[in-house]
Design a protein around this nucleic acid. Sequence first.
DNA 1: TTAGGGTTAG
Length: 332
Amino acid sequence: MLCLIHTTPIVESNKILDSFAKMMQYPTAVSLSHRLELKGIVPSLVTLNILINCFCRMGQITFGFSVLRPKILKRSYEPDTITLNTLIKGFCLKGRVKKALTRILTGDTRALVQLLGKIDDSNAVMYSRIIDCLCKHKLLKEVTNFLNEMVLKTINPSVYTYNILVDALCKKGKLKEAKSMITKNMVPNMVTCNSLIDCLCKLGRISYVWDLIHEMHDSGKPANGIRLDVYTLNILLDGLCKGKRLKIAQGVFQDLLVKGYCINVYTYTIMINGLCKQGLLDEALAMLSKMEGNGCIPNAFTFEILICALFEKDGNDKAEKLLREMIARGLL
DNA sequence: TTAGGGTTAG
């Protein structure tokens, strides 16, 4: 009650708008904000940031900018880190960072980059998000530029930033360079180890993987929080399957089931893929039944792998049956 | 706590 006495109409309106946004009812939040404005409730920067977030979540980054220019700047509000972070997320969601940062700067993209230069209190989250997008678009030169910019602004890269870089290097098979990222300034965590394990598996260096996994497992729960998780197990199983070590993968998988480890739809799908690649389609179909029996629901990816394998092996009837099953489950 | 936060697996 006391809270209600001390709040203002705009704060109450923002709470309602944010509730709709949290429930992913973005169009409702947008139309409500228009109606509130028509009723004379002047939007605050918080209102406009919520609106930008709604547009970005709907993939309508241009409308996000239409809030920035005529509403934020014309009201002489100062866009803050939340405004910018939200817009950057919108760009990353739309996959437009590549276009934004390859000197094809037009309209919205130009406005975003200009804004980046103006904001003094930009942070590691912002830069990490951009660096991640750049890595995924293989724009490594721009990554270096952004890292240099972080240094100039005395923003310390976090473990998230380093993990993005480690993973990008690992995915290119550059294990040595990835390891060189781990310095006294960077305390690796299990995400770092998972990226390294994935790389080691893909390079066929399984014995090193076992050493690293034993090191993680034996360390229990040390201060840096490194321990085996479902990501590690899935990366390992996938690496074994793809490295022609299906029997070992099956043994590890069975062991995980017996010991009651937490496994998920990825784990089963990896095993199904491994079995399919070896032409063991009956075993793969049995695995599908097993996962459902264990309460793990297959997704579109799981079905896709099985259906492709069945079509390739002339199992058209079974493939069509699974296709119908997919449709019935609303996965197509 | 009226708004935004980043990394790893099929």
